[in-house]
Amino acid sequence: MSTVSTISEPGNEIPAPVRKNLLVDAWLVLFLAIAFGAALAFVHAKLSPIIQANIRNETLSLVPVLVGSPEEYDVKELSHVTPSGESISFFHVTDKSDKGLGWVIPASSIGFADRIQILVGLDESASKIMGIRVVDQKETPGLGNLISDPAFRDQFEDAPTSEPLTIVKTDPAHSHQIRAVTGATISSVTVANAVNQAVMDLRSYLAADPS
């Protein structure tokens, strides 16, 4: 840190009192650096496990909710590479006797403002959507924001997966149609596309791994 030269040559000799001050300053900065470094290491050691647990629980706490909130369950995390080359990780929920209860798949797509991230819950045979939750979105408050509200996302409960879901602006005539949030068609379409993508990803996994 300091550039104090201990070799005194006649030309570039630093006067003794200034040289001593520079050493004192360097000692103070070094001492503070070591003291603060120790404090930060302590904080890191104590808090890092708690933070990691928070990050994991964020997703894991939603998983049972999306497959019907069973009383006792086990969650297995799996990963799979889709035909388009993307690597996804998702969850298989089973009960204590290892009977399958459902799947929870993350999906995301670019909405009106920024990326929208959702979790989709499907039943064991992947024939029916059990529900969705919007995990992260930055859509317009009061408009696109409302895709997180139960009024919109409850429409996805019990929706069939035999055909891709589509968004309509009027009352749905068909069980594959979801009514858009008024004034936020793009955000609604993005959620539907993400749900369809999640269903396709799960199907490609089940086709590759029949067990």
């Binding site: 900065v29 503070l32 650096a33 603060f36 404090a39 930060l40 904080v43 890191h44 808090l47 890092s48 708690i50 933070i51 928070n54």
Partner: peptide
Amino acid sequence: LTIATFVTIADRVLAAY
């Protein structure tokens, strides 16, 4: 240096609790 250290501590405490 002092301010950056305390901000890091505050940030970690917030993320944990």
